[in-house]
Nucleic acid binder design. Structure first.
Length: 480
DNA sequence: ACGACAGACTT
DNA sequence: AAGTACATGAAG
């Protein structure tokens, strides 16, 4: 790493700057430990320090994670790095597999990338210093470590929830990579979060700033009763539904700690499973992994001077890509209020319900329950109803969904797909230029500015300059 | 594309 | 005494 970069890191760690949390790790050669930028321990002498971009790289250099700042609970680097290198695509695919709970076959993954598994290994070795397998294992281990610290789950449950299939191997990997056995790790530090009745609580970090007010408002105006709700107007709740685990999560913002306290409650008869997926789900819905500092720096240079950026504005995700595209279809040509009304009816008619702690939970409908639905309770054009059925059919028939495929379905246009990509996949680079609100705001901006550019040029240049963060530009325009 | 080898994983 | 939970060696 270049030296001016090192100076930035030095300043960040001396200031314990949370904006750099998870973006680099400080390796201390004299102690053999690596830390986050925010570590409360007295800072190490710079001459003993080496900086790493990822936790895995630090571990690879023979260092162990610090017991105080716990690098395992730092915000992740977003899988979407904007740049379309093969390595970044590989990392994004791995992340995607993690967040859907699929197991990862490196041969299959390489095939999808159009390279051989051998070359993939080579790329990982060259740029990250490890094999893809090691990378995957280490990521699982760090999540397992988080569960050890923050929950009372038994080791076996933790191993399975972190994505290991054999406890034997989990123990072995844990011991060799992190230096301690799982129980030793747990007894070294005290659990700060006691387990809740039929659930558990995790603390999820972000890098500040975070504009919770705007995020809260966005979620609240789009909330579907029984599927999403707010306690006291501040605690956000939403249901989740996997094959074996159903329930809801409850997210409370703790601005002074740069994170959310998130409790997961499981329905009776459903097991505590899919924790890694749940963790990613909440992170995506609340957009916790965004590097807002960097994004806003880019946007500042892309927009006209008259336009003011809302600091800490995040792009809220939907519960799934399926939910996102349905929200998009029902949002065609109507107001937000109208769209939410339609969505509520759809969810209440076709989504399953279940009680947990006396709370009635409603899950977003499965694709199979929509593919032949008459949807006659919704007042909207028949073609749009057909579009919903078509999309549902596509989702039932395809194990691996590509939202771009939906473009060929009747009633699905670029706006709908882009919206779904932005909210469903967390794609940061979607510019919803065809959106009516965006269009109007852009026109107003164009007139305001004394530029000689045509509107088309004005818009095209802004779009280019905002790369790869166009989704954030879209949200900024919506909130203007 | 190949064989040798390391390491992942199971019982 | 049986059952549960965790860690680990040997071998393939």
């Amino acid at each position: 790493m270049e030296s001016n970069q090192n100076e930035i890191y030095l300043r960040a760690r001396l200031a314990r700057d949370p904006r750099f949390d998870g973006l680099f790790f400080t390796g201390v050669k004299s102690t053999g430990i690596y830390c986050r930028s925010i570590c409360p321990a007295p800072p190490a002498h710079e001459e003993n320090v080496e900086y790493f971009k990822t936790a895995i790289a630090a571990a690879n250099a023979g260092l162990r994670p610090c017991l105080r700042c716990r690098p395992d609970s730092a915000p992740q680097s977003p899988a979407w790095l904007g740049t379309q290198t093969t390595l970044n695509r590989a990392i994004a695919l791995i992340e995607e597999a993690f967040s859907t709970g699929e197991s990862i076959d490196l041969e299959a993954l390489s095939d999808r990338l159009g390279i051989t598994a051998r070359y993939l290994r080579q790329l990982f070795k060259k740029y990250l210093g490890t094999s893809p397998k090691q990378y995957i294992i280490y990521k699982k281990l760090l999540f397992a470590k988080k569960l050890l610290h923050e929950t009372n789950l038994g080791i076996t449950h933790i191993a399975l929830n972190a994505g290991f299939e054999s406890v034997r191997n989990f123990n072995h990997q844990f011991q060799t990579q992190l230096g301690l056995t799982p129980t030793q790790t747990r007894t070294r530090t005290q659990n700060e979060a006691a387990s809740t009745e039929n659930g558990l609580t995790l603390f999820l970090n972000y890098r500040p700033p975070y504009n919770w007010d705007k995020m809260r408002g966005f979620l609240q105006t789009r909330a579907v009763e029984e599927m999403e709700w707010f306690d006291d107007d501040v605690i956000y709740n939403k249901t989740f539904c996997f094959e074996e685990s159903r329930g809801y999560f409850s997210a409370q913002h703790m601005p002074e700690k740069n994170g959310f306290k998130v409790s997961f409650y499981f329905a009776e008869g459903s097991q505590v499973k899919n924790l890694y997926q749940l963790n990613s789900l909440v992170r995506r819905i609340l957009d916790l992994d965004a590097n807002i500092e960097q994004i806003e720096d880019t946007l500042k240079n892309a927009i006209p001077e008259e336009m003011e950026l809302k600091s800490g504005l995040r792009v809220s995700g939907a519960g799934s890509d399926f939910e996102a595209i349905n929200r998009a279809i029902l949002g065609q040509q109507v107001s937000i209020t109208q769209a939410v009304k339609l969505l509520s009816k759809l969810v209440h008619e076709y989504g399953e319900a279940e009680f947990v702690n006396g709370v009635k939970l409603r899950f977003f409908p499965h694709p199979h329950s929509l593919q032949e639905a008459s949807i006659d309770i919704l007042k909207m054009p028949g073609a749009r109803k057909q579009a919903i059925r078509n999309v549902a059919e596509y989702f039932t028939n395809n194990k691996r969904v590509n939202l771009d495929d939906c473009l060929s379905l009747k009633g699905i246009g670029p706006w709908t797909v882009d919206y779904a990509k932005m909210r469903g996949l967390g794609n940061p680079n979607i510019f919803l230029a065809t959106d009516l609100v965006v269009k109007n705001k852009l026109k107003a901006l164009h007139e305001q500015s004394d530029t000689k550019q045509s509107f088309d040029d004005f818009f095209e240049i802004m779009k280019q300059d905002a790369q790869p963060w166009c989704s954030y530009l879209t949200f900024q325009l919506w909130h203007l």
